[in-house]
Amino acid sequence: MNFNIVLLLVATLVWGTTFPLLKSASATLSGLEISTLRFLAASVVMLPFALKASRQSWRDGALLGIVALIAYITQAFGLAHISSNRSAFLTSLNVLMVPFLGLAFGRRLSAQGVFAAALACFGIGLLSWEGGGNWLGDGLTLLCALANAAYVLILSAVAPRNDPRDLTATQIVLMAILGCLALPFAGESALGSLPQRAADAALPLLYLGLIASAGMLFLLAIAQREVSAEKAAVIYALEPVFAAIFSWFWLGETLGLRGMAGGALVVLAVIISEWKFTRATPVAESANTI
């Protein structure tokens, strides 16, 4: 198996563990607080690389950082209103959004992509019906999926021209700075109590910052130098599967039959959207090539 594919699989597995951790942390911290604190932790280890990064890395890292920060914040806010399982499946729709966003770069939609999108919408309907829907939580999580799709496309474009460590460091440091600047103006609950509330969630925040953010963004910067956005996206389709497993193990969350069917359709749609169908070579044509 290609080494870069293995790196993406590892990143997807680790991301699956973050959903129950984010759900737990959101009980005492807001989405912006969680995102800011996790990137502050990550920036501690990545700052030396950021200080040595080129202007090109800072420009590309700034663009990636803004898009990623939108994804992290909307995901964390959304998790305050919906379950980890639903959040994971809705977030997985970024895989479907990648080819649609590709229209901006002159790509054409295929019948295969349209069918996959319709199948995913039906799956989301079944999934959201489980236990009643929440427009705010689902809407924020879909915005997270859109930001993730944009991130995958942008990363595939800029990764080949940057050092992976520099690209990772610049976007993490920028996200930490933007988060700190936004906190006083975001109407967050009692900033004076933030240190205590952060201490209560110290271990999840350190894991989210050092492992799930710094470590996995670094793996992505390496792998997507060689792996296309489309191929990377289909690997990320495994994230909700891992998230469901970890949510069941840590939080005891379950899905009814309708929810499981909806989630299965979403995953199936994600896979179909990236599956490469090829026609068999005619026998006569094959014989002429011998």
Rank of each mutant, 00 (worst) to 15 (best):
M216S: 08
L206G: 00
Q171G: 00
A116R: 06
P240T: 08
G61P: 04
F249A: 15
H81I: 13
A190D: 14
T141G: 01
Q56P: 02
L136V: 15
F3E: 15
E230G: 11
L238P: 10
V158Y: 06
N94W: 12
N162W: 08
G187F: 00
L96R: 06
S30E: 08
A145H: 08
H81N: 15
K23D: 05
V98G: 10
V241K: 06
P240L: 05
F39T: 06
A214E: 00
A284G: 09
A76P: 12
L101W: 09
L93G: 10
L127A: 02
S92N: 14
V266F: 03
F105K: 14
E274G: 05
G133P: 02
V44T: 07
L155P: 06
A269W: 03
I172E: 07
L13Y: 10
D138A: 04
I271R: 02
L251A: 07
S35H: 01
G137D: 07
L47M: 11
W250G: 12
I5F: 14
W15I: 01
A243C: 09
N288T: 15
F100W: 06
I272H: 12
L205M: 02
F89I: 07
M46H: 01
V227M: 08
V67E: 00
R197A: 04
G16A: 03
G209A: 00
R107E: 14
G139F: 04
L205V: 00
I290E: 15
G259S: 03
W58Y: 01
A104C: 08
V173W: 00
F39S: 08
L178V: 04
A150N: 12
V152Q: 06
I66W: 07
L219F: 02
L79S: 07
A80L: 10
A190P: 04
A104S: 11
L208T: 01
I66L: 13
F277M: 13
S87H: 12
I70S: 13
A201T: 00
S35C: 01
